[in-house]
């Protein structure tokens, strides 16, 4: 009965067809994705008097922000841009499984009191004791990316996993100092750390 043999043979072949799935390299062309909107345009002149009406109610601030050339960056698509204020060059909501953190980008003329003063300002915000100048180098990491010298500060208060923590970066550029500060609950900030480091790597001079 050849037809019966063929029928059984087909059924057996179906069994072994299951081994045929194989991974392949795919190539395709897609329209460019729209980059996540950066609130740079609105924030670019945050320090100039004419823009103050567009800012938050705090717009009438006496703190001058840097008004020279702006740094540029690419934020991950999952970060949500928030409206910039007169103080902030940009602002993002950074969501992780463990909760949400806030990323602020600010820039001020000069060295704003120096690295130690600013690291201690951040330490104060998360309830850590102040550092002495001798301890500064061991408390920060220094990297160079896109020709910019970046000082990275990690501030996680011990003992309380829910405590406010800061992952920050200080970038001197064009006579100003730029601050990138990711602040939120420890678990959330820790989970967003790789994305933050990746983000820092995209920061570059225009």
């Amino acid at each position: 009965m050849p037809s019966r043999t063929i029928l059984s043979g087909l059924a057996a072949a179906a069994l072994f067809l299951t081994a045929c799935g194989e991974d392949k390299v795919a190539t395709y062309r897609v329209p460019k994705e729209k980059e996540p909107e950066l609130p740079m345009a609105a924030a670019a002149d945050a320090g100039t008097p004419g823009d103050q009406a567009a800012g938050a109610p705090m717009a009438d601030t006496s703190v001058p922000t840097a008004s020279g050339a702006d740094l540029a960056w690419e934020a991950p698509a999952s970060w949500k841009a928030k409206p910039a204020s007169a103080m902030r060059k940009a602002s993002y909501s950074v969501a992780a499984d463990a909760g949400e953190s806030d990323l602020s980008v600010t820039a001020f003329p000069g060295d704003v009191g120096g690295e130690l003063a600013n690291v201690n300002r951040w330490r104060g915000q998360v309830g850590l004791s102040l550092l002495r100048a001798d301890d500064l180098d061991s408390a920060v990491s220094r990297v160079e990316s896109n020709g910019l010298k970046i000082t990275i500060v990690e501030l996680f208060p011990p003992g309380d996993p829910g405590a406010k923590s800061i992952l920050g970066a200080i970038v001197p550029f064009g006579g100003s100092t730029w601050f990138f500060k990711l602040m939120g609950p420890e678990a959330s900030v820790k989970a967003s750390k790789p994305a933050f480091i990746g983000f820092l790597h995209t920061v570059k001079a225009p």
Binding site: D23, V25, A26, T27, Y28, R29, V30, P31, K32
Partner: peptide
Amino acid sequence: DPKFDDVVAIPESM
């Protein structure tokens, strides 16, 4: 290209 991205996607298994 300012309008298009040409993508070569390599599976993780490779």
